[in-house]
């Protein structure tokens, strides 16, 4: 198989009031999410994201970077993010290059504190930056 052929198609999910916008770029090894997340069925939404990350890490040897500009997360979204970070940690322990940048609005320091709580068990590079993520 070609080195850059995705196992599953890239995600391009437009955001809504209650769901984050999600873009995955297999070629660039990049996954981005922006916005609030309190979907009616968060498993349906995040299962495809988790599947994409799992497939990418299983298929590729290239780095994976997550660019997050998430604001509000409900409990099941928090759980989904923990699952994704766990996948990254596993990959990192196997020697893979993975990283996260969590962008937050400097007017809302709370987001940075919560991102820091997520970071607790991650040994890979996990930056929390006061900025606005490029869309």
């Amino acid at each position: 198989m070609d080195d850059t052929t995705p196992m599953i198609p890239d995600l391009d999910i437009p955001g809504s009031q209650s769901t984050p916008a999600i873009q995955s770029r297999w070629q660039q090894g990049r996954l981005a999410m922006q916005g609030d997340s309190y979907p009616e069925n968060s498993y349906e939404l995040f299962d495809q994201v988790i599947a994409w990350v799992r497939d990418y890490l299983a298929t590729e040897r290239r780095p994976l970077h997550l660019a997050l500009s998430l604001v509000y997360l409900n409990t099941s979204s928090v759980k989904a993010m923990m699952d994704i970070f766990d996948l990254l940690e596993e990959a990192h322990l196997e020697g893979r290059e993975v990283s996260v940048t969590w962008h937050y609005d400097p007017r809302n320091e709370r987001i940075a504190e919560l991102a820091d709580e997520f970071r607790e068990d991650c040994s890979y590079p996990f930056a929390i930056t006061p900025s606005v993520a490029p869309a």
Partner: peptide
């Protein structure tokens, strides 16, 4: 530990919403 982390972060988001 995971469950506690989940509750902690989730409580944090709720506090943020209240603010």
């Amino acid at each position: 530990r995971r469950q506690q982390k989940l509750s902690r972060i989730s409580d944090g988001y709720q506090a943020m919403m209240r603010e």
